[in-house]
Structures are given as structure tokens and as C-alpha cells.
């Protein structure tokens, strides 16, 4: 039997880790969606360490809920929870396909797009603006009791 040793090359290990990370990102919201039969996803306590400590959302808060609603087919609610939720889904899905293809064919694809500093900085800047806007909206629509209720302190 012929076997391929994927663990000897650090670059291949990184690709396997990348696939595992992308799979986890997509699978965890799906498992939560399947397990949550009582329909209380919107009111469930967030597991984000920053939100648990402060009550305020971190830049990634809401992506899990966004993916859950995307799986349910509710696109508007998905972007309500996080603008980048559908983008995360597309990114992870594409990453799994590309990284798997790279492992099998031993060639590299779309390196100039996936590792483009320009694209990364643009996305980072957009995310920062989005998070800032979301924070202002969050503070203006929640009083101190609401914020504390979303943390572990109340």
C-alpha cells in the first residue's frame, strides 16, 4: 500500500492546519445549530472571552451566530449579526478547496490573492471601520445594565 507522509514538510503541516481550522470554523456553528432545538440562539450567552469579561463585542463577535443564520438561509439576519459572516463562509470554503488541491497536486494556487498585503490591509481597514461603527451603535442602543448582563458580572 502506498502512503503519503504529509507531516515531514512544514509547509504541508501548515496547509493541513489551515484546512482543519477552516473546517472547524464552518463545523462549530453547524453543530450548534443542530444541537439547539429550543430556538434560543439569539439570547444565548456569548462564549467570547472579551464579551464575557467586559460585555462589549470584540471584532469577531457575532460571526458564529451569523454563520448559523446563513446555514438556516436567513441572509439578512446573518449580516445583522456580523457583516463579515457570509465572507467568512466563502473564505473558509475556498481555503478548504484550494489547500486540499495544493496538497494533492503539490502546486500552489492563487498565492498572489490569498497572501496579498493590499487586499489584507483593505479588509483590515474595513473591519476596523465596521467594528467602530458597531461599537457606537452598541453603546447608543444599550444601557449599562444591558451591557453588564451580556458579561459574566451579572
Amino acid at each position: 500500500m502506498i502512503s503519503i507522509n504529509y507531516t515531514s514538510n512544514p509547509k504541508q503541516i501548515r496547509k493541513i492546519l489551515g484546512i482543519a481550522g477552516a473546517l472547524l470554523t464552518l463545523a462549530i456553528p453547524y453543530i450548534i445549530m443542530v444541537q439547539n432545538n429550543n430556538g434560543h440562539i439569539e439570547t444565548e450567552q456569548s462564549l467570547c472571552p472579551f464579551k464575557l469579561l467586559t460585555g462589549f463585542p470584540c471584532p469577531g463577535c457575532g460571526i458564529t451566530k451569523s454563520l448559523i443564520f446563513l446555514y438556516k438561509g436567513n441572509f439578512l439576519k446573518s449580516i445583522y449579526y456580523h457583516l463579515f459572516g457570509p465572507f467568512t463562509f466563502l473564505f473558509c470554503f475556498t481555503a478548504i478547496i484550494i489547500l486540499s488541491a495544493e496538497l494533492v497536486t503539490k502546486k500552489e494556487y492563487f498565492q498572489n490573492i490569498l497572501y496579498s498585503k493590499k487586499i489584507a490591509y483593505c479588509l483590515g481597514f474595513t473591519l476596523a471601520i465596521y467594528h467602530l461603527t458597531r461599537l457606537i451603535y452598541f453603546i447608543s442602543t444599550n444601557n449599562i445594565d444591558d451591557i453588564l448582563r451580556q458579561s459574566i458580572w451579572q
Binding site: 492546519l17 472547524l24 469577531g60 497572501y115 498585503k117 490591509y121 479588509l123
Partner: peptide, 21 residues
């Protein structure tokens, strides 16, 4: 650590874990 990983580490937990790894 490439720049896209560094930026996405700030908003996505699995990428953040990869960053620290």
C-alpha cells in the same frame, strides 16, 4: 506570519490560535 493571517487573527478565533501557534 503573513500579513493576512496577522489581520484576520484579530477577528477570527481559529486564525488567532494559528497566529499564536
Amino acid at each position: 506570519i503573513s500579513q493576512p493571517i496577522a489581520i484576520f487573527a484579530g477577528c477570527c478565533l481559529p486564525v488567532n490560535l494559528y497566529f499564536y501557534y
